[in-house]
């Protein structure tokens, strides 16, 4: 059994009276693709914010690669090899795609030559070479999302957290992303953790899913088993039929 690259242990996060995460625990094995799903407001993005250091949990801890990272600022966690994309894209409007990717590449590169190599490599890998000189403000949604993935990959991560990559995309664009997630995982040996709202998408990419509901983990296992799980059907699938 491969060792976990990420361990979330009993994480609780409250906002005032609202408990966004309630003692959530799970492991992510190195090399896996794991999906985290749940209806809106289930605490998925909060979970990512806790893992990446944007939020500090009231209880519990996050262990990455054997080190406790709770309480560390995001840039330290990024330096250790965690990268992420955002649910609502956070683009660099006044920078070109190449420049945006460069920003990421500086994290691990030793010199300018290596930066250039990383940028070229990542742009090609994500398939946005043709957008190299376009400014962030000129891009459409799928281009922004791809740039954000490229930017994250340029930091040479070992764990990539992808927050709702396919929301607002067309079926063809979704296929493109699914294929890319597989390639990121296989060709780059990057562990991927996906947040998704859409069950069908997660079925096609992850071998294991975690279902969150009202801040609690209600299911963990194979995606097809989730369809038969009573709690999941009640909480999540039930809602989706509406």
């Amino acid at each position: 059994m491969p060792k976990p690259i990420l361990e979330v242990r009993g994480v609780t996060k409250r906002f005032g009276g609202l408990t966004a995460l309630n003692r959530v625990s799970f492991n992510v094995e190195e090399g896996a693709i794991i999906g985290i799903i749940g209806p809106n407001g289930a605490g998925k993005t909060t979970l990512f914010n806790v893992i990446t250091g944007f939020l500090k949990p009231e209880e519990g801890k996050v262990i990455y690669d054997g080190h406790t990272v709770t309480g560390l600022p995001p840039h330290r966690i990024a330096r250790m090899g965690v990268a992420r994309t955002f649910q609502i894209v956070k683009p660099f409007p006044e920078l070109t795609v190449e420049e945006a990717v460069r920003v990421g590449a500086y994290l691990k590169a030793e010199d300018e030559g290596e930066v250039n190599n990383i940028v070229d490599d990542v742009l090609e890998f994500v398939g946005i070479e043709h957008l190299r000189d376009r400014y962030g403000k000129e891009l459409n949604l799928i281009q922004l999302k791809l740039t954000e993935i490229a930017r994250a990959l340029a930091t040479r991560p070992r764990l990539l957290l992808v927050d709702e990559a396919v929301a607002g995309l067309t079926p063809g664009e979704i296929d493109n992303i699914i294929e890319m997630v597989h390639r990121i995982n296989r060709e780059r040996n990057i562990t991927v953790c996906l947040i998704e709202h859409i069950m069908r998408f997660i079925m096609r990419v992850s071998e294991r899913i975690i279902v969150l509901h009202h801040g609690e983990k209600i299911f963990e296992g194979k995606p097809e088993e989730a369809y038969e799980d009573e709690a999941v059907i009640k909480a999540y699938l039930g809602e989706r039929r509406i």
Partner: peptide, 22 residues
């Protein structure tokens, strides 16, 4: 590097943090 990091900070601080920028 300094320049690209500063521009990233100007454009979006949270994204910059996540790219490993202090």
């Amino acid at each position: 590097k300094l320049g690209y990091y500063l521009l990233a900070i100007r454009e979006n601080e949270e994204a910059a943090e996540m790219l490993g920028i202090d």
